[in-house]
Simulated scan of single mutants.
Amino acid sequence: MAHHETCTDPRHHVHTGDAFVAQVERACEQRGLRLTPLRASALRLIADADRPLKAYDLLDRMKATHEGAAPPTVYRALDFLLEHGFIHKLSSINAFVGCHHPGGAQHAVPFLICDRCHAATELEDEQIVGALDARARALGFTPRAQTLEVHGLCADCAAHPDGD
């Protein structure tokens, strides 16, 4: 995975683009899913990006190797990767990042997003996710999905307020 996409729980973290794609390939094989060349290409580009990647940036990068790449094909690839938990969508910035443990079950992961450098950190904290779920259920609400995105400055950007 890229430098800026960090994870707070490295126990089952995928560290390189090659390892990431290989783990998704294994997960697809185990689940009986079809990782088409276009889906694999989108996955690789997301894994190799140094920041969350917007769909049209992904499309521009895919056109270099896939002549027929068009918005509908890219969105279908993203939908597949999202549906099966291989990537996460950061709704507040409309961008995508690879899941740091794509072989596992789908899960809710809060993100810390730097407003300056656009680093996205998976805040793998079961207590936060559990507290949100429990509070929702206490109010009679049945959660189906959870998205929590916290914006601010990462440690590097906060240490260099002038961007130096």
Rank of each mutant, 00 (worst) to 15 (best):
M1D: 03
A2G: 10
T6S: 12
T6V: 03
C7G: 01
T8D: 12
D9H: 08
D9G: 10
R11L: 11
R11Q: 12
H13Y: 15
H15F: 15
H15I: 03
H15L: 13
T16V: 09
A19V: 06
A19T: 03
V24W: 10
V24N: 06
V24I: 10
T36Y: 07
R39F: 01
A40Q: 14
A40C: 13
S41A: 15
S41D: 13
S41T: 05
A42F: 04
L43P: 14
R44Q: 13
L45E: 14
D48Y: 03
A49W: 02
D50V: 06
P52Q: 08
K54L: 05
K54C: 04
L59Q: 15
D60W: 11
R61C: 03
M62H: 02
M62Y: 02
A64I: 00
H66W: 08
E67L: 13
G68D: 15
A69C: 12
A69L: 11
A70I: 03
P72H: 10
P72E: 07
P72K: 10
T73A: 15
T73S: 14
V74H: 02
Y75E: 11
Y75F: 08
Y75A: 04
A77T: 02
L78S: 02
F80V: 00
F80D: 03
L81Q: 06
L81W: 02
E83H: 11
E83S: 09
F86Y: 11
H88W: 09
K89D: 08
L90G: 05
S91G: 06
S92D: 07
S92L: 00
S92C: 08
I93D: 00
I93P: 10
G98V: 03
C99E: 02
H100P: 06
P102N: 06
G103Y: 05
G104Q: 01
A105D: 13
H107R: 14
A108K: 05
P110H: 00
F111N: 07
R116K: 10
R116P: 02
C117W: 03
C117Y: 07
H118Q: 15
H118R: 15
A120K: 09
A120Q: 05
T121H: 07
T121D: 08
L123H: 15
E124W: 13
D125A: 10
E126Q: 10
Q127V: 12
I128R: 07
V129W: 03
G130Q: 14
A131D: 12
L132Q: 04
D133A: 11
D133T: 04
A134W: 04
A136E: 06
R137H: 04
R137S: 07
G140V: 04
T142N: 03
T142G: 04
P143K: 01
R144A: 02
A145L: 07
Q146R: 09
L148Q: 05
E149I: 03
V150E: 06
V150Y: 11
V150M: 14
L153S: 08
C154I: 00
A158Q: 10
D162V: 01
D164G: 09
